[in-house]
Design a protein around this nucleic acid. Structure first.
Length: 498
RNA sequence: GGCCCGUUAGCUCAACUGGUAGAGCAACAGACUCUUAAUCUGUAGGUUGAAGGUUCGAGUCCUUCACGGGUCACCA
């Protein structure tokens, strides 16, 4: 819905607000001042003075100058109670004509719910014990030209909440907590890696060859260079170039982009943490993952047992580690001997995923895992040693050339992390890329493109390295107990309305 | 992309098997100097997501479209 459309079709309440704005302007009131300097936030007032008794407040005559948005008004003739609010709290204000002058009381009659004011006044407690500001004066911070949603139910419409996130944040106070938690998670992740000697880096989001994962990219074009570029699907190959360059411990937290379906677990742009540590392997990565996520749970939620929907997720270490094939045998509901029948597996996979093109055995097993096993894994579980064919950037397992030294971390049925002992042998990497190219020829457009420059980088010598990626949005979902990724992304992708 | 569900006043929601579109909040006018989902009196507010169709008559039934939610597919 465009602004021009709103413009052409004003509702009576918007007209009323504009008329009030004009009257206020005639009174010479600046509705959009350049700046003000509040003495307290609403939260400051509540935390500092809520404990004081009526008598103490009367004695101390604490003056405050607090900003907020008007959330409700209760007018009773020559006196008015109202609440101002911000994302952290609400504060009541008592405005009396005999305290603020007849003129200012009239000015206040042009104030609407939604307007932003800063109130100067003395704190006291009402008969019912609510900490309240006795207004002495007030200034406008901004006039609100649209009516706010209903005060009791807030904004319920999911679509409107995502399209007008500002309204969601204004009306639904708990909403901002999710994004505050998200910010804390980011901060603590950085602290975790910084303390362990990692450096944070930023690598290209626009790439000539989109590598590091198996996914469809977004394509764009650079005019001056006359070349196609892709939005990255992962930072992986660039981060590993840095390992070759000797940076040894690097991490990046940033957006990646995948041109695929949207669901409660997928947004086309999403935030990924990736890190690489020379002189480590995927076992070390499992330890680090436990450490990191437990640290976040303990520090931010104060617990190692967190609710998620109808589940309780225990972060108590150690987490279950189970091999991919064993997980299939245990959880897929298929008789163990069915996995000896290669043709049968391929057939089963193609019924589960009828659109899939070329099916290797590894890919078929991967499909069966995704369909039948993944969603059963609620407690944190490392699924280790998946088929090598679906892991073109991972070292083969020492004791089984068909498996990769790789794991996925599943929590609440969602894939949260993916890590491996990085493949460092350039010739082997070339063969893997070529294998992927074969898949691509057969019609699998998610297979990895050949990146010769990356192979050449490996030819300079990359030390044994463990690397991992964690989907931050999903991690936030787990820690914030939100079942949809759209609840942890401020502006999830939606089709434009109209 | 398939299937299912939803879309009614600014917001939150009603409207039986097809029969005059309604309430609360918000708004407007008025009363009220400790209210707090304030209260009281009165007023206004709608192309029922869009376009077609069936019918004497459609918010309700049918078709197409738009947007969203769920689910499956694709996919970390």
């Amino acid at each position: 819905m465009s602004d021009t459309k709103n413009e052409s079709k004003k509702i009576d309440q918007e007209i009323a607000r504009e008329q009030k704005m004009e009257k206020l302007a005639q009174e010479g009131i600046d509705l959009f001042p350049h700046n003000v300097s509040p003495s307290h936030t609403i939260m400051d007032v509540l935390t500092d003075y809520s404990e004081l008794s009526s008598e103490e407040l009367e004695e101390k005559k604490i003056e405050v100058f607090v900003p907020g948005r008007i959330m409700s008004i209760r007018k009773m003739g020559r006196a008015t109670f109202f609440h101002i609010g911000d994302s952290k709290g609400k504060l009541q204000v008592y405005l009396r004509e005999d305290k603020v002058s007849e003129k200012n009381y009239t000015v206040f009659s042009f104030v609407d719910i939604g307007d932003m004011l800063a109130i100067k006044g003395i704190l006291f407690k009402t008969r019912t014990g609510e900490l309240t500001t006795m207004a002495e004066s007030f200034v406008f911070l901004a006039k609100c030209l649209h009516p706010l949603p209903e005060k009791w139910h807030g904004l319920q419409d999911v679509e409107l909440r995502y399209r007008k996130r500002h309204l969601d944040l204004i009306m639904n106070p708990g909403e901002s907590d999710v994004f505050r938690l998200r910010s804390l998670i980011m901060g603590h992740i950085r602290k975790f890696f910084d303390e362990r000697g990692f450096i944070e880096v930023e690598t290209p989001m626009m790439q000539a060859i989109p590598g590091g994962a198996l996914a469809r990219p977004f394509k764009t074009f650079h005019n001056a260079l006359g070349m196609d570029l892709y939005l990255r699907i992962a930072p992986e190959l660039y981060l590993k170039r840095l390992i070759v360059g000797g940076l040894e411990r690097v991490y990046e937290i940033n957006r990646s982009f995948r041109n695929e379906g949207i669901s409660s677990e997928h947004n086309p742009e999403f935030t990924m943490l990736e890190w690489y540590r020379a002189y480590s392997d995927y076992n070390d990565m499992m330890d680090m993952t436990e450490e990191l996520i437990c640290y976040l749970g303990k520090t931010l939620l104060g617990t190692d047992e967190i609710p998620f929907g109808e589940h309780r997720i225990s972060l108590k270490r150690p987490w279950k580690r189970i091999k991919f094939m064993q997980a299939l045998r245990e959880y897929s509901g298929l008789a163990p001997n069915r996995f000896d029948d290669k043709a049968g597996i391929l057939e089963l996979a193609s019924t589960l995923a009828p659109d899939s093109k070329s099916l290797s055995l590894g890919k078929a097993l991967d499909i069966i895992f995704d369909k039948n096993v993944k969603h059963q894994l609620i407690q944190p579980t490392f699924i280790t040693n998946p088929p090598k064919e679906v892991s073109p950037l991972a070292k083969a397992a020492k004791d089984n050339p068909d498996e990769a030294e790789r794991f996925e971390l599943i929590i609440a049925g969602m894939e949260i992390a993916n890590a491996f002992s990085e493949l460092t042998d350039p010739e082997e990497q070339r063969r893997r890329f070529e294998q992927q190219a074969e898949e691509r020829k057969k019609g699998d457009d998610e297979s990895h493109m050949i990146d010769l420059d990356y192979i050449q980088t490996l030819e300079y010598g990359m030390p044994p390295t463990g690397g991992e990626g964690i989907g931050i949005d999903r991690l936030v979902m787990i820690l914030a107990n939100k079942k949809s990724i759209r609840e942890v992304i401020l502006f999830p992708l939606l089709r434009p309305k109209q």
